[in-house]
């Protein structure tokens, strides 16, 4: 099924949104628990805002400024299906997260140390693992994310890379936007998953049963 059908057909759109919302809730709840354990303090997460969005919209969700520096953690899954996954945080959120995880002065994004980047990869890894695990639990798919990689760079350069990396221009992306609260800070992260429409159909078939779109 074409991505636009999901967006334009009201019924499909609602079914898809419900499914994604449920996936997002589970992924986020698990991530919050894992982060609490690592940070050894209470971590709350907002109900995630989940949507299938056209690519132009994806750019706007992060920043209107194409050369704004952001932290991006990316990986791809192997096993039951191949899907690219990207987690993005802006400068304020990155620094807020680091200040919870380590002591000392936090540099600006252009001057992060290798250690800072390793810390960020680990947090990104936890969140990505739980998002994928939620997808797997729900759908019976067996997606395994590879160890992620980090880039701190201009937001458009990163998004463009994710969109084009397989040599095919993707049109839509699954977006899971979440706020993470600790006592002292508020961190906003967005996880993007890049399925092609076969993968999205597969996911919906697993959730609602084969032929769900013909009922």
């Amino acid at each position: 099924m074409d991505f636009n059908q999901y967006i334009e057909d009201e019924r499909l759109n609602i079914m898809l949104r419900d499914a994604l919302q449920e996936l997002g809730n589970i992924g986020v709840a698990h991530s919050a628990t894992a982060l609490s354990q690592i940070l050894n303090r209470k971590v709350d997460m907002s109900v995630p805002r989940v949507a299938l969005v056209p690519i132009e919209e994806m750019y706007k969700r992060i920043s209107e400024v194409p050369d704004e520096l952001v932290t991006a953690i990316a990986t791809e899954t192997v096993g039951g299906g191949k899907m690219d996954i990207l987690m993005v945080m802006d400068e304020d959120s990155t620094r807020a997260l680091l200040s919870v995880l380590r002591s000392g002065e936090i540099p600006d994004l252009a001057n992060l140390t290798e250690l800072d980047k390793e810390i960020l990869v680990e947090v990104g890894n936890i969140i990505i693992l739980h998002c994928v695990s939620a997808v797997n639990t729900f759908t019976g798919l067996k997606l395994y994310p590879l160890p992620p990689s980090i880039a701190v760079d201009m937001v458009n350069a990163i998004l463009e890379h994710m969109l084009l990396k397989d040599g095919v221009y993707k049109t839509h992306v699954l977006s899971v936007e979440v706020d993470i609260f600790t006592e002292s800070s508020n961190i906003k992260g967005i996880v993007f998953m890049f399925p092609d429409h076969r993968e999205l159909d597969n996911l919906m078939n697993q959730l609602y049963g084969e032929g769900w779109d013909e009922i």
């Binding site: 192997v78 590879l146 990689s149 880039a151 990163i158 890379h161 990396k165 397989d166």
Partner: peptide, 19 residues
């Protein structure tokens, strides 16, 4: 034409920048 992320299992296909 850069490669923003390094993956361990990177294939030539994923290096769209150099292509």
């Amino acid at each position: 034409g850069s490669k923003m992320f390094e993956f361990n299992n990177s294939t030539a296909v994923s290096d769209i920048g150099s292509r």
